[in-house]
Design a protein around this nucleic acid. Structure first.
Lengths: 349, 349
DNA sequence: TTGAAAGCGCTAACAA
DNA sequence: TTGTTAGCGCTTTCAA
């Protein structure tokens, strides 16, 4: 049947009022079995599909949540999104996904669009942690969950990975392997993960009485290219580091690429630890040691929190979750002084 | 200001009628400058954001397109999506993205949801090429563009990669390198790429008078695991192939992993060519030769076609585009008989 | 240049 | 168990 039938058409064809049709559509009961069947048949015959816009105008909620990520090409985000989507579908919600390309302007637009569409909630990894632009969302009474990056200027439920812990442990591992000249390729310091991973790095050095050396700190932007540049810069140092910690997946890839180009022997001349597991990790020789994040779980938890907020509008205080990352020790971080100091004992605090 | 202002509130505050406010919101002109400014101020003061649902009810179009992919974790799709999104944003459209996990049932649901929401068009890589489930969309007069996988039972604009050509050239390359026992790890034969890449493989063998050998054909499902299994199976053969062609990125990864585990020396004992470029390609030694697809362009073109369909509703006949893949010859396919037949001359047709 | 008013398709309160 | 009806917030004639 030609589409575009509306509730009127169905009512007419089934010889009932639109109210009755509405009852059937929404499974509200209170309709005689016989009538219901007639209506169901009419719906099928007409190929009727209810108009969400009209429905939303009355009932307010849309059963839709908006999801915003900064970079859809970073495999981390599709994984998180998959987690969100799965849980959302289970609860009868529908997720609409958007990527900002790290542009706060685009993020603004998307957010506005989300409000226009009346999403019931928003899950966001923001391109602008300042958070001013989220105020409008908040004012509309739309709950927000921050994932992976927190929001500064007001309280939002937040789901993070314990970045400090992850990078601390990674750097600690390097130290215990005897490394002292440990470089870091940082992420942007205006992002939670960028900042926190740097903090973990500094803390580990401090705890083991290694002093921070500016030369070994490279400011990257979480992009592959900056990882590549970072490795180059560190290689050009007169006194090269013996180990490098990379703050995320893409920079790890760039970094390892550079090492190949520079013929900087991974595992021999330069040890390595990366935040985020990557496809290439197990294909390299030596295999990359990494800090791995529970991406799917991150997404699931985010939706769960959002769902609670949507259902119980009461102003529960802000909640913050930190999921633990997992250290995956493979082969790229080798003992620094195989003869002198087999396990770095002398360095223990 | 507390949100949820509507056009009424704005009108009241600006001392005009809602019609005038509407004119300003939609930039229709015909409003005195002074009045417009008053209205703009009211909008700002009230934090007014127009209600898309109400708007849609009148004006029909939503400036929204729906995008469906089968597997958001396959990096191919995020790239395509990025292409779509970019073009869409340029034209003032908003893309809502969904992943089906290769489930036709989920795809159905999503499609229905898209119709309910009144999307202006759909771009889809279907999990069910049969296409019956798309009829309802078609009947609503919503244009559809198929990407990467075609639709069988009725005419839809389609954007594909020239799979036959790509795999033909890859296999041809292997043949010219002197290989005769060339295995293929196939994709599902009920998908366009799966079928077509197999066809290219067969055609190349035929053209060079090599006969098809059942033992060298492994049926995979485009997932990493099946690539892994494929390599294992081929390795277990009494008479092993000397070269393998893998039909997509994920299976390539699985395949190479297996080779590592089996200590099947890539490039020496076994040559390799894969469809789709992958991150790991240039990190392996030897580097992987691959057929690369123009993913971003695929997405851009898809949106462009869709946009045309949305604007000019006239029934233009179905169009089908095939973008050419690119052969990236790196190192994983080596000469088979370095002494006897240096460049495969004797095999030329 | 502005305003009044008729719906768009639906839900839900109230009536029967 | 079913029907009548009043909006939801907006766009868009038509009139002024």
């Amino acid at each position: 049947m030609e589409g575009k039938a509306n509730i009127q058409d169905v009512a007419k064809r089934a010889n009932v009022s639109i109210a009755t049709v509405s009852r059937v559509i929404n499974n509200q009961g209170g309709v005689r079995k016989q009538t219901e069947e007639r209506i169901l048949k009419a719906i099928k015959d007409l190929g009727y599909i209810r108009n969400a816009a009209a429905r939303t105008m009355k009932s307010k909620d849309t059963k839709t949540i908006g999801v915003i990520v900064p970079d859809i090409n970073n495999p981390f985000f599709p994984s998180v999104m998959a987690g969100i989507e799965q849980k959302a579908r289970e609860k009868g919600y529908f997720a609409i996904l958007s990527s900002t390309n790290e542009s706060p302007v685009v993020e603004q637009e998307i957010l506005k669009n989300f409000i226009e569409r009346g999403v019931d909630g928003v899950i966001i990894t923001t391109a602008n942690e300042n958070g001013d632009h989220l105020k409008q969302v908040h004012e509309q009474g739309i709950p927000i969950i921050a994932v992976d990056r927190s929001i500064q200027y007001y309280d939002v439920d937040t789901v993070l990975v314990d970045n400090v812990k992850g990078s601390y442990q990674a750097v600690q591992h390097m130290i215990l392997q005897g490394h002292e000249k440990i470089a870091i390729i940082c992420g942007p310091q205006n992002t939670t993960p960028g900042r926190e991973r740097f903090i973990g790095y500094k803390k580990a050095l401090e705890d083991y009485n290694l002093k921070l050396d500016e030369r070994y700190i490279f400011q990257g932007d979480f992009g592959e290219r900056s990882g590549y540049q970072g490795a180059h810069q560190l290689y050009s140092l007169e006194e090269r580091p013996t180990a490098i910690f990379s703050s995320n997946n893409l920079m790890t890839i760039g970094c390892v690429k550079a090492m190949g180009d520079l013929d900087w022997k991974l595992g021999e001349e330069i040890s390595f630890f990366g935040f985020d597991d990557v496809d290439i990790a197990t294909f390299l020789n030596p295999k990359l040691s990494v800090v791995s994040r529970p991406m799917h779980a991150l997404g699931e938890l985010a939706f769960q929190l959002l769902h609670e907020r949507i259902q119980f509008k009461d102003p529960v205080p802000k909640r913050e979750y930190k999921l633990s990352p997992e250290l995956i020790i493979r082969e790229s971080c080798r003992l620094r002084y195989p003869n002198n100091s087999p396990d770095g004992q002398s360095l223990k605090k």
